[in-house]
Simulated assay, not measured.
Amino acid sequence: MGKFYQFARAIVYCFIKPLFRVEVIGKEHFPMDGAVLLCSNHINNLDPPTIGIVSPRQLRFMAKEELFNIPVFSLIVRALGAFPVKRGFSDREALRTGLKILKEREVLAIFPEGTRSKTGELGKGLAGAGFFALRSDCVVLPCAVVSSYKPFRKTKVIFGPAIDFTSYRNKKISAEEATDKIMTEIRNLLEKYR
């Protein structure tokens, strides 16, 4: 974990943890080494920092390109290891960057839905999650955030058991099918802990 990331994480932790009474479930499922693709539902702009402060390893978030156009904020986001993705079509540069992160045995964190859910319900996942799961030797860590993000109401971050995708790679399933399997695991966590 980089020094700036640790510093920023500690500052954010002091605000988010008590304000939203963050509870972590399943932290023992988080792999402490090797390539990990963390896939979570997305309900609020506070999801990335909330997941980040409770994760035992540094997360490299794929974030919408618009965030990198905001002066000063873009410098902070880049310093924290995030990288931009153009939404709405296949962004080859973002896919290459994501694969490079996994090849370097880091944790790539993505929201397979591609955008925040307006209803709070889990939407359909995009093929990018399946692409990363199938084109690298990572394990997939399903994650669910259950929260209203109202002050002093409990927020839960749940990590499910890591999924080994080796058999799916051998079966040569499609990226869409792989994403569907990931979304099923996230849905199961939401149903269990809501």
Rank of each mutant, 00 (worst) to 15 (best):
T97H: 05
A82P: 14
K3R: 14
G120T: 08
P48F: 01
M32A: 00
G160D: 00
A8Y: 14
E23I: 11
Y5I: 04
I43R: 08
V85C: 02
F68L: 06
L59A: 01
I51D: 01
Q58W: 01
Y5M: 06
V22E: 00
N41W: 13
I163E: 07
G120R: 13
E66R: 10
I76A: 05
V140H: 07
D33W: 01
I11L: 15
Y193L: 08
Q58A: 13
L75D: 10
I173E: 05
F20Y: 14
I76D: 00
T184K: 13
K3Y: 10
A162D: 02
F132V: 11
R21P: 02
G123H: 12
K64D: 06
I163P: 03
S117L: 11
V36T: 15
I158S: 04
L95M: 14
L75H: 14
E176T: 14
L37T: 11
P56S: 07
S55R: 11
I51E: 00
S74G: 02
V140F: 01
K17Q: 03
D180C: 01
L126P: 02
V85Q: 03
N69A: 03
R96Y: 12
R21M: 07
K17N: 10
N188S: 15
L37V: 12
L141V: 10
F68V: 07
E65T: 04
L80I: 00
Y193I: 12
I53T: 09
L59M: 08
D91S: 04
A144W: 03
P18E: 00
S136C: 02
F83W: 14
L122I: 11
F4E: 00
I25D: 02
I43E: 02
F165R: 07
S55M: 08
L95P: 06
P161K: 15
T166F: 15
A175P: 10
R135N: 15
R169E: 09
L59F: 06
V12H: 00
C138M: 11
A129N: 11
C143S: 11
E121C: 02
A109G: 02
R87E: 04
I158P: 06
D164E: 04
E106R: 15
G114C: 06
Q6I: 02
F61Q: 05
L108F: 03
E28A: 09
V85N: 05
P84I: 06
G26W: 08
V36A: 08
I101Y: 03
V85E: 03
P161F: 05
S90F: 13
T155V: 05
K181N: 14
L108P: 07
I182M: 15
R9C: 10
E66D: 07
G34M: 11
R78N: 14
P161G: 08
H42C: 07
V12D: 00
L67M: 09
L80F: 02
L134T: 12
A79R: 15
E28I: 04
E28P: 05
A162V: 07
G114A: 09
L67A: 04
T184N: 04
C14I: 04
Y149W: 06
S90I: 09
V145L: 06
K27H: 07
